[in-house]
């Protein structure tokens, strides 16, 4: 478990990093927190010619709260999402899901951008990004572009980042004060990748009906998915326990993950509905509490 020989670069600026990416294209990999990449190097699943260590680029380490969004530089460490009160206050769901990423040691090294660019469908941050309609800020030789999270995840461990581009930041909308959120994950052990996880955020109108709802699922498909049918069934409805239970079943049709040693397909279908139901009820509970107070 020793990586093969590779060239090591540690650019100081985004421009340099982009230039290196343009030069090496698919023969280079970007090292951010290294929590997934380093094991891949050690097991020689990844054999890049060049390793681009972006940890020296200070502009990627900023967290900024704007009027409508919180922008996280790609190198912001996951533990900051988990522990910074600014995050908990402005995007509480994001702070909550981060706790489920690996173990605390992983979160101290692991970065926001690294997890998103790795695009693992079982991962928490991609799921949160899809659920909360985050925007990816991507820089390439032609400049910056912004892509919606829902379009960014393109398949199994695949994003729309071109070989000559670098993910530099992600913007999460600030959560409305009256929104309720919920997150439920089932993994075989604490810190393992989710067998299935659901993130939900919703608002209720004065009659207690669902006026806005977003539900994202991890680990049921080749990429994080929005539970569009479940959302559609609950929108405008009173979110009673029964209504939520019935609507949550609709997610089963979106489960395409096949059997693996930890979960069968049919188990995942049931689990997807279970975590969806529970996450939505948790969100409803918070929204109702918020509306009362």
């Amino acid at each position: 478990m020793k990586p093969p020989r590779f060239a090591y670069y540690d650019p100081d600026t985004v421009a340099e990093a982009v230039e290196l990416k343009a030069r090496f294209e698919t023969d280079a990999v970007v090292l951010a927190g290294g929590q997934s990449l380093v094991p891949m190097l050690a097991t020689r699943l990844a054999k890049p010619d060049a390793l681009l260590d972006i940890n020296r680029i200070s502009s990627l380490q900023q967290l900024e709260v704007g009027p409508t969004h919180v922008e996280f530089g790609a190198l912001v460490r996951q533990y900051q999402l988990e522990t910074d009160p600014l995050v908990a206050r402005n995007v509480p769901l994001l702070a909550a899901v981060t706790h489920y990423i690996g173990h605390v040691e992983n979160r101290h090294r692991g970065t926001v951008g690294g997890s998103l660019a790795h695009a693992d469908s079982a991962a928490e941050l991609p799921t949160a990004a899809v659920t909360l309609d985050a925007e990816m800020v991507i820089e390439g030789p032609a400049g910056r572009r912004v892509e919606a999270a829902r379009d960014f995840f393109a398949g199994w461990m695949t994003s729309t980042i071109a070989p000559d581009e670098l993910l530099v930041a992600v913007r999460f909308p600030i959560t409305p004060a009256d929104a309720g959120w919920g997150f439920v994950e089932v993994a075989r052990r604490e810190g393992d990748f989710a067998l299935a996880a659901a993130a939900a955020q919703l608002r209720l109108d004065e009659a207690g009906r669902v006026s806005e709802i977003a539900i994202g699922l991890a680990s049921i498909s080749d990429r994080p998915l929005r539970a569009t049918e479940v959302e559609a069934q609950l929108l405008g409805q009173l979110p009673t326990a029964d209504a939520v239970a019935v609507a949550a079943r609709a997610i089963e049709e979106q489960v395409t993950a096949s059997d693996d040693m930890h979960a069968t397909h049919s188990y995942r279908r049931h689990l997807a509905a279970t975590v969806t139901q529970r996450a939505v009820l948790e969100a409803v509970g918070r929204a109702q509490e918020g509306n009362r107070s």
Binding site: V186, H262, A263, S266, Y267, H270, L271
Partner: peptide
Amino acid sequence: VKPSDIVATVL
């Protein structure tokens, strides 16, 4: 005994 075994029995 895995979670999927347990749920399969229940279902």
